[in-house]
Amino acid sequence: MFNILVFCEQRDGKIKRVALEALGAALSLTSDGDQVTAVLIGENIASQKETLVSGGADKIILVEALTLNTYSSEAYGRIVSDIAKKENASLILMSATAMGKDLGPKVSARLEGPFAGDCIKLTLDDEGKMTATRPIYGGKATSTVLSHQASFQVATLRPNVFSVHDQAATQDPQVENYSEIPDLSNLKAIIKEVVSTAGSKIELTEANIIVSGGRGVKGPEHFDIIEALAEALGGAVGASRAAVDAGWKPHSYQVGLTGKTVSPSLYIACGISGAIQHQAGMSSSKYIVAINKDPNAPIFKIANYGIVADLFEIVPLLTEAVKKMKNE
């Protein structure tokens, strides 16, 4: 009997889709008798119970406190590891978001358990030991690791890889209000402010469609055509390292080895040659479209569909065609 604990990330009281992916992953690892326990931390979160139930949780632990409204590594780390001990968790899952990439190692340090970050594949053997596959070298290779301990294993999951479970719950889950909230008055690191960054609302790593611009965009003033296509498609905007290093877009847009690794369903590379560092960050996309003037650009070697032409001609036409399609 395994108990899989899933830390479900919320923002402004709303469960993130990636948290449901983690729940879905947990559910796919269980068989009869096993349990998926969702942990939700924040303020005014009780209304989110239904989402967790349809996401596959057998049990829900709500940790509600005003002071937990913003993330704290120390506070969240303590609470999640305390719950893991109490629940005797075999495995603790969460999404590899900015929060999960911090919380996962923190919880793992406290529990001294096996850790695997940014997993793209996960299985449990009969004893409950995980085998996890994760990209390394920025996606140039994958590493499969075997855990030697069946308790307190921590894995963070790459967004957009695991499927969400969306069937009506067959039974009412058990809901527990966690009351053993530790004294949080002496935290040494406190979030003073959360400043929204301007620009695309959809986070690159969580986006289903990404339109990226590179050196071929020729300047920050021309990125609007990339943004228009992304908007028409309901996707996010990315950039190559060349475009970021030139100062056309902030680093948060960068896809590639020293930027973000993304796995959308559709990645449209505009004016990007496709250096090995860029490919490392996007080659796990389901479909890749390349638009580039240079027929010898390496990006065409990995693209499903390529158009050898000036992006300034193609991208606006594509935006119009997408808009027209969506209006039909």
Binding site: R11, T97, I191, V194
Partner: peptide, 8 residues
């Protein structure tokens, strides 16, 4: 973080 900056 996703879509925002935390000031700590």
């Amino acid at each position: 973080i996703e879509g925002a900056t935390e000031v700590i």
